[in-house]
Design a protein around this nucleic acid. Structure first.
Length: 661
DNA sequence: CTGGGCATCT
DNA sequence: AGATGCC
């Protein structure tokens, strides 16, 4: 509808193959629903206008624009699919609350679940009331800047925000008060309505006699544990009660890019090869725009079988040799296709015996293990990053609102190269996710290399972070006393700050297993307040021509200008700062022996065994410094620890050089 | 029971 | 690498 405003007034369906994947509200009023077959939809609504939607490019672009817009007001934005975003706006709420004078009056914007707005005393729920105001403001910004409308839910956790967001459907918002939690949970017509309870889970619950949400609320936990295991059992039970302690975690840039196509039948290798070429060339284009370098390639297929009709996909994956990876990120797409096709076919033949008949109904190509070029092979904990010329090792960053022993309430620390600007200079920012997700550049900024390489464990002290140097000083002066027993303090002091900090992180000090895995924890983000306010934006149908929207907002305005005018006030990002490219300041070495950012001189001075490890890694034979897929804060620490312990052999040997002889 | 993505857990 | 879940 944005691309063709005339479509706004007609019943419109978006078609992928034989399915209407979604449709506008005009069509819905005429009986068209999502996921309806094209024939059924045409029957119901002969005037239905169809637009092909297999190519997601436009949707993806708008989707990320929206996420980035939200992120400019608050970095804690978590994407859920292309059209939903969770936001933890606690910090904005608290700031407003603090700035508010006694005389200010509260009021809820939009609906309040199961209450008549007029009867609600907003001062009973000041934070949620402010949340509803912020939601209204954000929705207005989204409308004026992007031309999108949508719903929002305001509640005390993600589950509830999501559930309540849909209560008043097109383009409205609803706030859920704590005293209405049981109402909204009890109203759910089936367990399947609970986000997190999918088909399989619902089936298993049904086998236990659990049908409704109420059944689950009352079902004995120990029996649930028997079926699902303790963590899942507790999670399910919590969900049924409207309890959800999962934090909003900044999604950052995607961890994989893929492209796929489905079809009725494909049965020759020639067709397969051509399809793979086609998919690869479009995927490579996206990959190039992303700027990161994939380390892994995966091919997925779906075979037609009578018994296993439509589901069950199988896949094979392999590492991408470095010389090919370079071509991908440098934009030699044609070369890359040529090099990748044989790789893909190899994987294909691992799954399909082409001497016999076969019948495929889907092919998917995927790049994953995406590495930012500045960070070389192993973002955090990487030795390799310290070989870069001209680029000081990146600052670690972290930080949460309110760690346990953070004495100054507003003094949360952030360490990044781009400083995020806030009006309140004492207030810094939040956890970002991965190397490469540099705030404003989640998607498609070519060679937008984040300077954030490492996120690290919670340090129970403040770390000043304006420069690497002061970082280092601070570390030296305040932390050496916590060294593990087998570490020589002399050696320690000579290390770069990042390594120092990592050695001091709980993973090291606890187990000495030398894991490079990061240990950002859940706690900082989610335990910060008792009354977390979360927003969910859902759906978006457009109301205005995008051109109109741009007219309304002076296009010459820098993106920041709206922030100055907006009552939301302080954007955390100074656009110039964010957009400013950090040029890869090291040239790509013509010498293929080393990755482009490795100084041969430094390399030659390394101990032979470390040299060998690194070379092995570069050759992709033995990923000694295999980058742990970045762990989001907030997931099971158990899992992380187990992984770390189990993988200690694969991590680098740096640690042994600290044992004093 | 169809469609093109994504993520997380095992 | 598969299963599951979300949009």
């Amino acid at each position: 509808m944005i691309r063709n405003p005339a479509l706004r007034e007609v019943p419109l369906g978006i078609q992928q193959k034989y399915i209407i994947v979604t449709c506008n509200y005009v069509a819905r009023e005429l009986g068209v629903t999502k996921l309806m077959s094209v024939t059924a939809a045409k029957e119901k609504c002969p005037q239905l206008v169809l637009v092909k939607g297999e190519d997601l490019t436009h949707y993806r672009e708008i989707s990320y624009k929206l996420t980035e817009l939200l992120m400019s007001y608050c970095p804690l934005v978590e994407r859920l699919g292309f059209d939903e975003n969770f936001m933890d706006i606690t910090s904005i709420v608290d700031r407003r609350l603090a700035q508010m004078s006694e005389t200010n009056k509260f009021s809820f914007k939009g609906h309040v679940y199961n209450r008549l707005n007029a009867e609600v005393d907003a001062s009973d729920h000041p934070k949620l009331a402010l949340g509803s105001e912020i939601a209204a403001e954000l929705r207005e910004v989204i409308r004026s800047k992007l031309g999108l409308t949508g719903c929002a839910g305001i509640a005390t956790n993600k589950l509830l925000a999501k559930l309540v967001s849909g209560t008043f459907k097109p383009n409205q918002q609803t706030t859920l008060l704590p005293e209405k939690i049981s109402d909204i949970m009890g109203c759910l017509s089936s367990l399947r309505k609970v986000p997190g309870v999918g088909h399989q889970t619902a089936k298993r619950l049904l086998a236990l006699g659990v049908v409704s949400v109420q059944d689950l609320q009352l079902f004995p936990l120990n029996e649930l544990v028997r079926e699902f295991g303790a963590p899942s059992a507790q999670r399910l039970k919590n969900l049924s009660l409207g309890v959800d302690d999962s934090p909003v975690t900044a999604t950052g840039a995607p961890q994989s890019l893929s492209d796929e196509d489905s079809f009725k039948k494909m049965s020759s290798t020639k067709e397969v090869l051509e399809k793979i070429e086609e998919l690869l060339s479009s995927l490579l284009e996206r990959m190039h725009k992303d700027g990161r370098q994939p380390q892994t390639f995966r091919l997925t297929i779906r075979k037609y079988t009578a018994t296993n009709k439509w589901f069950s996909r199988e896949s094979r994956q392999c590492p991408i040799p470095n010389h090919i990876g370079q071509k991908i990120s440098s934009g030699c797409s044609d070369d890359a296709v040529v090099q990748l096709v044989p790789l893909a076919m190899k994987l294909f033949h691992k799954m399909v015996d082409s001497s016999a008949a076969f019948h495929l109904t889907l092919i998917n190509v995927c790049f994953s293990n995406l590495q930012t070029r500045g960070a070389a092979t192993s973002g955090k904990g990487s030795i390799t990053s310290f070989f870069a010329h001209n680029t000081s090792p990146r600052k670690t960053q972290i930080c949460s609102s309110q760690t346990q022993d953070d004495s100054s309430q507003a003094g949360d620390c952030l360490c990044t190269d781009h400083q995020f600007i806030t009006q309140d200079t004492s207030q810094k920012t939040e956890t970002m996710k991965s190397p490469g997700s540099s705030g404003a550049a989640l998607h498609g900024y070519k060679r937008k290399q984040s300077s954030v390489v490492a996120a690290e464990g919670p340090l129970p002290l403040k770390v000043s972070c304006s420069t690497a140097r002061s970082d280092c000083d601070e570390t030296n002066s305040t932390m050496t006393h916590r060294l593990p027993p087998n570490v020589d303090p002399e050696v320690f002091r000579l290390l770069p700050a990042e390594i120092q900090k990592e050695l001091l992180s709980p993973d090291y000090t606890k187990s000495l297993t030398n894991t490079p895995s990061s240990s950002v924890t859940v706690a900082e983000v989610s335990h910060s307040t008792e009354n977390k306010t979360l927003l969910l934006f859902k759906g978006s149908q457009k109301i205005k021509d995008i051109k109109e929207a741009e007219d309304k907002f002076d296009p010459s305005d820098s993106p920041t200008s709206v922030n100055h005018q907006s009552p939301l006030g302080q954007s955390l990002f100074q656009e110039e700062d964010v957009m400013e490219e950090e040029r890869p300041s090291f040239p790509l070495s013509p010498d293929c022996k080393f990755p482009g950012n490795v100084d041969p001189k430094v390399f030659s001075e390394l101990p032979p065994d470390v040299q060998r490890e690194l070379q092995d890694e570069w050759k992709q034979q033995r990923p000694v410094l295999k980058m742990p897929s970045f762990r989001k804060p907030g997931k099971s620490l158990m899992t992380k620890d187990r992984k770390a312990a189990g993988k200690s052999k694969q991590t680098n040997n740096l640690f042994k050089y600290f044992k004093p002889n």
